[in-house]
Nucleic acid binder design. Sequence first.
RNA 1: GGAGCGGUGGCUGAGUGGUCGAAAGCGGCAGUUUGCUAAACUGUUGUACUAGGUAACUGGUACCGAGGGUUCGAAUCCCUCCUGCUCCGCCA
Length: 420
Amino acid sequence: MIDFQLLKSEEGLNRVLTSLKRRGDESSSTDLKTIAEKRSATIREVEALANERNVQSKKLGELKAQGKQAEFDELREKMKEVADRLKVLKEQESEVEEKFRYLLDRLPNLLDDKVPDGKDETQNVVLRTVGEVPKFPFAVKPHFEIAEAHDLVDFERGVKISGARFYVYNEQIAKLERRLTNFMLSTHERAGYKERTIPLLVKDECMYGTGQFPKFADEYYRMEKDALSLIPTAEVPLTNIYADEIINEEQLPIYLTALTPCFRREAGSAGKDTRGLVRVHQFYKVELVKFVKPEDSEKEWLALTADAERILQKLGLTYRVVSLCSGDMGFTSSITYDLEVWMPGLNRWLEISSCSNFKDFQARRAKIRMKNATTGKNEYLHTINGSGVAAGRLIAALLEYHQTAEGGIDWPAIEAKLNA
RNA sequence: GGAGCGGUGGCUGAGUGGUCGAAAGCGGCAGUUUGCUAAACUGUUGUACUAGGUAACUGGUACCGAGGGUUCGAAUCCCUCCUGCUCCGCCA
């Protein structure tokens, strides 16, 4: 969440409103200032009355100890009224607090000044393209046609077992995925990321901490009985490792990575990418997460993006780096670069990684702080993360790049890339 | 799943209705002593919100697993939930 102290000044409020407008968010942001003010006023009232109660209660204790029964009884009667009044006031306070939290919880992160203006994904800005768009001397096929033709992926049985957007990898793809994820983890380990194995089911407070809850709750699988959610990305448990903790500044930066399945309901994407491995309910992904000092976050975010790019470079895939425009930015992110890989068979660019700087937005929600070594004060640190990268889409890309004129797959070529 | 016992500050651990944000010890920080280190001694040491102040800081409120309740007053009493440990059962 954003620093709600911003709402108190004209200047801060304008920053919030400008950012919201750039996002194309028409939510009731103007209410914020009024609610924030009402909240402060109510808190002041409650605290003043609570102070009186505390002072008089202390006095009652003294009177009793001194055996002054008459004075005790008199004051006690008076304080009953104060207690009643306080009770009513406290109810008002929690009502205001609830309204305030409701708005604040649903308020997106402030956009970085460098985020380009734009309405939707069509106005994202391509920063650079790495590699050439490959040319084939034959008619290229999308990955799912190749996979079906050679029985590499069993889409029907995936549907039989679990429904649409589920799949079964047969032997060669299953093994390729195992090789690829291992390759990605090793590559990141060399760049300084520490691997973790983490829970795939998380509490609501974790989903809140990284910003999935409460606004986007419908997009995730939740186990109602146990009040746990299947993670949509390793970002959730990985970031929450340090929830509610204060980290010494000297221990930063912390780089973490994890391989996990990711589960997404894909609610609202009916009819989109219905074939293939591009949009599925479950896929493996290697995630990169960084905890950094605020002053380092831009540098560290660019470095993390480069770490994700390295995977695509090593595998010889053509991709471009895209700066998401204001209207296409995610709720929690302050600035995001997407990596889009060229898909020869689909004949389009496909998002395979999304690298974001959240600044202190997630840190505030998850209460992840650092102790400033010079001032000794606790401050919110910055969190950064990105996919490094999504395995399912990576497999799809490799199949399309290494298809042969005969309609098969050049396995040795893939193998060579992995061994390079 | 059953039975029993617990959850207190960075840690250990006291505290069963009033002056308890909370004893004591450890750790941390500052200082004194010291040729240096160590030891000893002295002081200091939580978080969030809130009001004032440029700030250092000062005042207030809240927090003793979480949420409710009783009371003028709750770490302490009552209820619900969560969670840890030990034993038993079950499963891998």
